[in-house]
Write a protein that binds this DNA or RNA. Structure first.
Lengths: 120, 120
DNA sequence: ATCTTATATGCAGATATTGCTATATACTGA
DNA sequence: TCAGTATATAGCAATATCTGCATATAAGAT
């Protein structure tokens, strides 16, 4: 099988500390660039560039929603790989305080505005 | 958690077509360098270098047995990751024809000599 | 049209990786 | 000790990646 090339490309893409954190963040629900930028404390162009690498490797897909672009993991294959790497952390079913999504001060996206309870 | 760095380093190490094939080969049982070299149809120094990369990343460990050095996956964490990437292929319990270990013509290691039935 | 906000792209110096070849080391046996 | 086999390392040119910065695009609001 020469899925080896395909899978190796995927592993290479997520084999980077920042990019691994990104896909871990995307595991529970789609996030926009500004949210990731705030969560990682990295510049927007930098995050956007890392997202482009993940996107070109087929790890994530983007979906526009007005001015925001939300990214999510591309498929189950990726999800399994990320789970194997980061642990099968539980995601909030709908609104569970313990595993609730991080609403960030630095982020103005629709998901964060209005529910500003996150860490600064 | 800054396991991110550690895990990313592991993913980066196996995020390479040849190295991914190597860890996939090592999934069922330890193999020596000459066997991997024959199985991958790559020069001994080249394979040895890729093994060194995997070894330095903590993905595999080596064990000397006379003149041969056998490599195996380092731990369950690695096994899970490789399974997620390559599929949870069954390994022969002891001697099962279907999943039996590849005995290679180009390889003279103790595991291959005597049971030369593999593909050439 | 223009301004603002959100995101993407281009560029560039520093650094790392790739795959190869030549050579070195380590063990075994005579 | 010396030869033979198994494995490791050094060195190299080509290529790719990293990460910061400046700038470009795209959509919404005025």
């Amino acid at each position: 099988m020469d899925d080896y090339h395909r899978q190796a490309a995927m592993l290479k893409a997520i084999g980077h500390p920042i990019r691994l954190r990104i896909v871990d963040l995307l595991r529970c629900e789609p996030e926009c660039v500004c949210h990731l930028s705030a969560a990682l404390d990295k510049s927007q162009p930098y995050v956007s560039q890392q997202l482009a690498i993940l996107r070109n490797a087929g790890v994530i897909v983007d979906e526009r929603e007005g001015t925001n672009i939300f990214y999510r993991l591309a498929d189950e294959n990726v999800v399994r790989q990320v789970e194997a790497a980061c642990g099968a952390r539980a995601c909030a079913p709908q609104e569970d305080a313990a595993t609730a999504r991080q609403a960030l001060h630095g982020c103005n996206c629709p998901k964060c505005s209005g529910t500003l309870t996150g860490r600064g």
